[in-house]
Nucleic acid binder design. Structure first.
Lengths: 154, 154
DNA sequence: TTCAAATTGTTGCCAAGGCTAAACATTGTT
DNA sequence: AACAATGTTTAGCCTTGGCAACAATTTGAA
């Protein structure tokens, strides 16, 4: 195949290094692993703040899934030390869960404000932020903050 | 606990409508459903363009997963009419797969160029784009394009 | 107090996407 | 032609996060 005088395959310099690309995809997979946990602690924190408590039923409603699904996830988060709960009682965050929630809410706010500053309609911005927030690096987040500040100065 | 004269629960007007929130999360879940398919057709198209063919081994290397995993996904994509393949032969995209790949590559390019225009370092921009691209709406994509144009005019 | 409604928990099912190990096919070399 | 190396597929297992159906508990109202 490669003993011809004229190469029939173009040089592959349009493709990035395989190892590099693999690391990127790995990072996305890890982010996705963490997504559920982040969404749950974020919403639990919001519910506790706004309503005084977070119940399984509320989470199921707001995520749009069955209560059985919520329950299963809660068991995992409990195992991972993010949520503490007693049978038939409402949900609480551990210290570690509270920390994660705080960081996630801050990141969510930055992404949302950024999209709004860019001129996106509020409903779209909210929807996009929900998906995007889990995939922005610290560097990009810093650039978002910078853009928001600049935009507000105009 | 709640038999006080003063209500200890603040009004919940800081929370958005549950149905609305459920739709947002649903959209994210659907996006995630499509992510794998999009990443695969995108990479298959890139490989065919750059090397003349896309093989299971290449995909496994570039995604950073085992070849068995790639094979299983390919079977699904075949079932869904995006990829056509013969046993022990390299992979091809169907017309529908080609269309999806084209749209994904275009979207990827916009997200990447946007992050670069924002001043993000190339390596970070690539990594973030890989995760973000699946979660931006058409409206946000349009805003990204607009920003790129404005930035280039400076 | 008793009982029905609401809430929470459990069980068993499914698909997706990870993995390893082993079987199978193709290809190039000797 | 035979064989070794390379590439592909299959089989079996795991975890996550969906679901429905049923069991259990709590709570509010009669």
């Amino acid at each position: 195949m490669s003993d011809k005088t004229v190469p029939d395959k173009p040089p592959a310099d349009t493709l990035v290094d395989p190892g590099q690309q693999a690391r990127w995809f790995n990072r996305v997979r890890e982010a996705h692993q963490a997504e559920t946990a982040e969404d749950y602690v974020e919403l639990i924190a919001d519910l506790i703040e706004a309503q005084g408590e977070a119940r399984v039923v509320d989470l199921a409603n707001r995520f749009g899934v069955s209560h059985a699904t919520v329950n299963k996830v809660i068991v995992r988060l409990n195992r991972e030390g993010l949520v503490s709960n007693q049978p038939y009682r409402s949900l609480f965050l551990t210290e570690s869960g509270k920390g994660l929630a705080r960081r996630c809410k801050e990141r969510h706010r930055v992404v949302l404000d950024f999209l709004l500053a860019l001129g996106i309609a509020p409903a779209t911005a909210e929807a996009d932020a929900e998906g995007v927030e889990h995939h922005v690096s610290e560097e990009t987040l810093a650039a978002f903050r910078h853009f928001i500040v600049k935009q507000n100065q105009k």
